[in-house]
Every structure is written in C-alpha cells, then in structure tokens.
Design a protein around this nucleic acid. Structure first.
Lengths: 226, 226
DNA sequence: CGCGGCTTTGATGTTCATCAAGTAAAGTGG
DNA sequence: CCACTTTACTTGATGAACATCAAAGCCGCG
C-alpha cells in the first residue's frame, strides 16, 4: 500500500532528501484538514505540537499588539511555508495564521518530524532553506512598505495581489479594507479614501471586493513613489 | 595541538553537537577579523563565500532601498547571529552588516560548514534554531516599532539600548541621530526634536552621544503609547 | 583653516488620524 | 423570511502629527 504523500506535488519541497521508508513513516500519521475563509489555523501563544504546511489557499500571518490591535505581518501562499516560522525557535507559536481564502493544510506530528530532522541532515537543510526564504520574504516586504507613504503602500498591496498572488490585473480582494490597513499600518478610512482616489483617477476599477487594475504603469509609479 | 575554538565561549552555540574531530576540521580554516566602528562587514549583493559569526561588538543590519536611502533593519549583538540571515536561502547577501562598535568576527569557509551541515543533522538543527531566533527577533521588533508613533518609537529605541544592549540606564549611543531615524522610519529632525523634548521634560539627560535615562517609568509609558 | 557631515531649532505646509454620520452588506434570531 | 443587530464601507470636516525647507552652530579631519 503506497502512501499518498508520494504523489503530493509538495513532496519535493520538503522531502526530496527523505527516503521512501521515512516518507511512509511520516505519511502514515499525516492528516489533511480544510479551513474556510476566516477560520483560524494557528493561534499565537498556543503550544506547538504539530508541523503543518499549506497545500492550497491563502492565509494571513498576524499578531495582536499589547494595545489589542491586530497587525498583519504578511500573506502567504502554499509555497511560502509561513507556518514553519516558530517551529524551530520556540515551543509556542508567536503569530497567528488565519485563512483568508479556503485553504487546505497538511498536518504532521511535530515530534515525528523532529526525530527525522535529527537523523537526516539533508532533510533539515531543506527545511532551513524553506524557513529562511519565508522569513527573508517577510522582512523584505515589510521594509518595502515601511519606506512608502500611504498611497504608495496601498498601490504596493494592490500590485502584490495582482502580480504575486493572482497573476492577474483583475482579482477579488480576499481581505477587507481594515485588513489592508492593519497590514500597511494606516487607518481603514485612509485606505478607503486612497482606493476611491485611485478609482476617480481611473487607475483602478472597483466593484465591491473586485478590483481591476486599469493603469498599471501609473500604479507602479505611485508604488515607487507617491 | 588543540584548536582554540574548543575554548571559545560561543562554541556551544553552534558546535555543541559537533565532534572534536569535526571541530578541528572547521577550526583549522577559521580566521578571526576585527572591524572598527563604521566598517562594512558584509555588503548586500555580494556573493556569499564565507560563514561568519560575531564574537564581540555591535552591528547594524541594513539595506539600501530603490530610492537610494538606507533603512536599518536591526541591531545585533554576538548572540543574535544576524550574519547568518541569507546564508541558507540565497547565494548572495540580501542585507549589509556594518560595525557600529568595534567588532570581532570569526570567519569560516561556507563550503566547509555546509559540508558538515549536510552530514551532521544535529548541527544543522542547532543552526536552524539560531537562524529562526534571529529572524523572529527582527520581525517582532519591527512590528513593535510599526505600531508606535514618533515619540513611542524614539522611546523604544532608547529602552532597547538601555535594556537589551547595555543593561544600563546610562550609555553612549553607538549610532547617529540619522541612523535612529533610518531605523524607525522617521526624519532625522524629528528624532532630534523628540530627544530634545525628552530632555526638557527631564526624562533623559543628553551629553552629545551620552544618554542617561532619568525617568524610566515615564519613558516606558511613552514607548507603550504616546 | 575651511570643508563636510552631524546636530539643533524654527517656520511652514502636507499627510495622516480622529471624529462624526450615513449607507450598504452580511450575519442572527424569532 | 423578515426585522434586527452587527460589521464593512464610504465621505466629509477638523486638528494633530510629521516632513520639508531653511539657517546656523558644532565638531573632526585633511
């Protein structure tokens, strides 16, 4: 009886240096779970008992500040592996992960994975590469946002979804205006005002959650500066 | 002939799961280099050929934005191991590292270290833990700064140096006002104005680069909000 | 000594948050 | 399914926070 992990398209990302024997060991204990839009996948502060990675969907990584307000650190797709973030540095999750689109996650027992990681250095190297790439992306993205003003930040987020997430100039915004604000560190009202302004200037078209980027060159200019 | 690494106080951080035989192998090729304040240790964009870690001093991690302005991502002491950041995710450095105090760095050939990492999974796990801790710290620190206003950010930076770097309410600020500004994403003038205001309110005393925190409770209040 | 970089302060204007008020949309219980 | 409540969205008015511009003093260094 072959394990279904063998045919998983994400196999090579983590398990290219894992033997079939090991893979079966890991695969037997795996559990696939679906989360609908809005559901919390990981809650900050909770004990880390499982090793999980995204198979499908889109999630947000966030944290509640001591003022009680949520800050959104990043969004991520399956290949970003943002769920690995605290796994090797802490026993508790430092961030929350929430589905912003229906998502599928594969769940493994952390101890089993760690046992393999302690024995198979190439596997551990692969994991490290993933974790490093994910964190690099987060740090660079946040630096980019930091150096822009309000309009630049909103433009940046729109381009992020168009280019990086959906590969399309027309898309359904998976998050609320408030969440954009929580991500770029501005107020909801000003995010809305900026979007309205882009609409008036015919840079984008808005139909509720649906966005169409009409003048990409100009949006890129605004993202770069003001 | 015993290798001097065996007596290095940082040995256990990286090499607690490395055999004496392996350690000698690594130790033989090591080179210790000193950098004076202001010297560039790592330049973004350069090929990564070496594996380095800080033994002494204080450095800043930074990046030049496409607008040509420098942004300071974080400061770090020896145990933060910020120099490992891009090592396992890219072949080129994504950030620059500059000494802000006289610093000593231990330099190993990256290939040799990687060879060991591929064979010794426990060593690789140790490295991963370090890298994860370093990046976690960066992400959390930048989130904290992001949610504060100008005064809160300046207060935060002062408390960071007092509590985390120097363990003393009196210290010599290792960086310029401009560098504080580049770290917190505000202008140099406003950083200076804020420091002057803290001085007028008798929260701190300033003698050029020397800072004394006179009313820590209040500074903490300002850091928390406003 | 003079030049460039760092520091400081003031004046001014822009950007952004806050407050307020209203509409639309979405979830909730009878 | 409809009234009801809540949450999301939108716009405007106002003031606070912050950037920019300008000018001058200071310090280290060639």
């Amino acid at each position: 009886m072959k394990c279904s992990c063998e045919r998983c398209e994400l196999k090579t990302l983590f398990f290219s240096h894992v033997s079939l024997y090991e893979l079966n060991d890991i695969c037997e204990i795996k559990e696939e779970r679906s989360f609908s839009k809005g559901e919390i996948i990981i809650k900050e502060g909770e004990q880390i008992k499982e090793f999980l990675y995204m198979k499908e969907g889109l999630v947000k990584l966030s944290k509640i500040g001591s003022d009680g307000k949520e800050q959104i650190i990043s969004f991520s797709k399956p290949f970003d592996f943002v769920s690995l973030l605290s796994v090797f540095s802490s026993d508790k999750y430092k961030y929350s992960v929430t589905a912003v689109e229906n998502s599928v996650v594969c769940i493994l027992d952390l101890e089993v994975v760690k046992t393999h990681a302690k024995q198979n250095a190439m596997f551990t190297m692969d994991l490290m590469k993933r974790v490093s790439e994910a964190t690099d992306k987060i740090i660079l993205e946040n630096l980019e946002i930091k150096r822009k003003n309000l309009k630049g930040r909103v433009a940046h987020v729109l381009l992020y979804f168009a280019n990086y997430v959906y590969n399309n100039n027309e898309f359904e915004l998976p998050i609320s205006r408030r969440e954009i604000a929580e991500h770029i560190g501005m107020t909801t009202e000003n995010v809305i005002r900026t979007l309205s302004e882009f609409r008036k200037d015919k840079i984008i078209k808005i139909f509720g959650k649906d966005i169409l980027i009409a003048d990409k060159k100009r949006l890129e200019g605004i993202s770069e500066f003001g």
